[in-house]
């Protein structure tokens, strides 16, 4: 392969990396078993966002529960219920966007961020996991991030972190739509009962937020290092 064609391939990859990773993330989401850890990852970031919102508004996290089907529960005490409810899906969107942006910023930043994620998972495991299933799921996620730290080739780690970020974003884009099942359960229902704004409005807000995050990432694709 000539030098000119190699440059052409590299520029194509850099130019369309975001869309290729997005297609890969959509494809992986459809796979029966491979998609499960990514669902857990999105569920974990959703629940930890509830918890962080509780901590930021003066409350505390009592426990975090994760289930094999990608569902989760966060038990909090105190704090502002509106913010805690809202930042479940909004927080997962933010995590997805932040992971992709930090991984895009620098290869070393991706490695540091991966270590921070491992620390957060370990803290959750020690302080807020109370049942065996949640402990196992958190351990598996921690092992996954531990492997990413061990990757010697930083460009591969960078790519993997971007993929994680897009997977979380995709999940947070579609997960709110599952609330529109007529059962009036979940964060949308909690916000509806607090604010008297219908549940589907909150679902639209979360959907638009995730779309906006994807748009911002797509727009900034040319500025990556």
């Amino acid at each position: 392969m000539s030098e000119h064609s190699l440059e052409k391939t590299a520029s194509f990859w850099q130019k369309y990396q975001f869309y290729l990773l997005l297609v890969a993330a959509v494809f992986v989401r459809q796979l029966p078993f491979v998609a499960i850890p990514f669902n857990w990852l999105e569920s974990y970031f959703h629940e930890i966002s509830h918890g962080i919102a509780a901590l930021l508004t003066g409350g505390s996290i009592v426990r975090i529960q994760l289930f094999t089907n990608g569902a989760g529960l966060c038990t909090t005490q105190g704090g502002l219920a509106f913010f805690i409810s809202f930042f479940g899906y909004a927080g997962a969107t933010f995590w997805g966007w932040a992971i992709y942006r930090i991984a895009s910023a620098h290869q070393r930043a991706a490695q540091i961020f991966s270590a921070i994620m491992l620390l957060l998972l370990a803290s959750s495991l020690i302080f807020w996991a109370r049942d065996l299933l949640t402990i196992i799921i958190l351990l598996l996620l921690a092992i996954m991030f531990l492997f990413t730290i061990k990757i010697r080739q930083l460009s591969t780690l960078q790519l993997l972190m971007k993929f994680f970020g897009l997977s979380i974003l995709l999940n947070s884009l579609f997960s709110p739509t599952y609330l529109l099942d007529g059962r009036h359960l979940g964060d949308g229902a909690a916000l509806a009962s607090t604010t008297f704004i219908p549940e589907f409005i909150w679902v639209i807000i979360w959907f638009v937020l995730a779309l906006a995050a994807l748009y911002l990432l797509a727009k900034s694709k040319g500025k990556v290092s």
Partner: peptide, 8 residues
């Protein structure tokens, strides 16, 4: 009494 909330 405890004021515990659940978020799914």
């Amino acid at each position: 009494l405890l004021g515990v909330d659940l978020f799914a």
